[in-house]
């Protein structure tokens, strides 16, 4: 017995370029020619793009020039990162943990770090460059950036030699252990049981409801201010 929604409103696809050409008022004085481009916006200059194009990809595209070692990175990390992330990436207080957690992913208490979870090392350099240190973003570049990232990878046992040099040349060769454990969204296959024709409407479960757990018992709802953290 299916509900009849009070009003069904088909949302048409947003207007593409064709729409105005078909339905808009052209100037009455002279019909507008069907146009391929609106001619709005100007060309972005190469130097403008260079200033903002800071992304790095796993294949190395976008890596900034520079080089560094974990040994050089340690001091920088201690000065600029450790206050939050701990001297060894173990985290100070509730700030994110950056290292550890190996072998924990299938456990009851997975610890997802660069070493234990992340699929690509390029993500570290990209992210630190764009977002860290927290509150002083986009301040790291060149050799300092490579050195800090090398130290973070060293903390994660991704590189084991403190003097191994990472650079825009060598960086793409750094591989992370967990890469193969990611797979693309497969819900439409693995969860196809959730597409049900006729969900049960009467006598779907036997017996009276039994309470298995109550949020009240856990008692972490504000204002209480205690309890587990989530990401």
């Amino acid at each position: 017995q299916s509900a009849k929604p009070a009003g069904k409103e088909p949302q048409a696809k947003p207007a593409g370029k064709e729409t105005p050409a078909k339905t808009a008022a052209a100037p009455a004085v002279a019909a507008a020619p069907a146009k391929v481009h609106y001619g709005i916006g100007r060309e972005a200059k190469p130097e403008e793009i260079a200033g903002w194009d800071i992304d790095v990809r796993p294949d190395g595209q976008g890596l900034p020039p520079g080089k560094g070692t974990a040994r050089k990175g340690e001091e920088l990390f201690v000065t600029q990162c450790a206050a939050c992330h701990g001297e060894f990436g173990e985290s100070a207080g509730r700030w994110p943990v950056l290292a550890g957690g190996a072998g924990s992913l299938a456990s009851h208490d997975p610890v997802k770090t660069i070493g234990s979870y992340w699929p690509y090392a390029s993500t570290v350099i990209d992210y630190v460059r764009r977002a860290m240190p927290f509150g002083n973003a986009q301040s790291l570049e060149g050799d300092d950036l490579y050195s800090i990232v090398a130290y973070v990878l060293y903390l994660n046992d991704v590189i084991t030699d403190q003097d191994q040099e990472l650079s825009d040349k060598s960086f793409p060769t750094v591989k992370l252990a967990n890469e193969a454990n990611f797979f693309d969204d497969d819900r439409e296959v693995s969860e196809k049981a959730f597409w049900k024709k006729d969900p049960c409407m009467t006598n779907c479960v036997a017996g009276a409801p039994k309470i298995l757990g109550r949020a009240r018992a856990i008692d972490v709802t504000p204002e209480d201010g205690k309890g587990p953290r989530v990401e």
Binding site: E9, A15, T19, A24, A25, P27, A28, V29
Partner: peptide, 18 residues
């Protein structure tokens, strides 16, 4: 309808949204 020339000529406008 919308006119650009003070009502001499009209074109039908695009109604967009509910």
């Amino acid at each position: 309808d919308v006119t650009l020339d003070g009502g001499r000529n009209w074109r039908t406008a695009r109604i967009d949204g509910p």
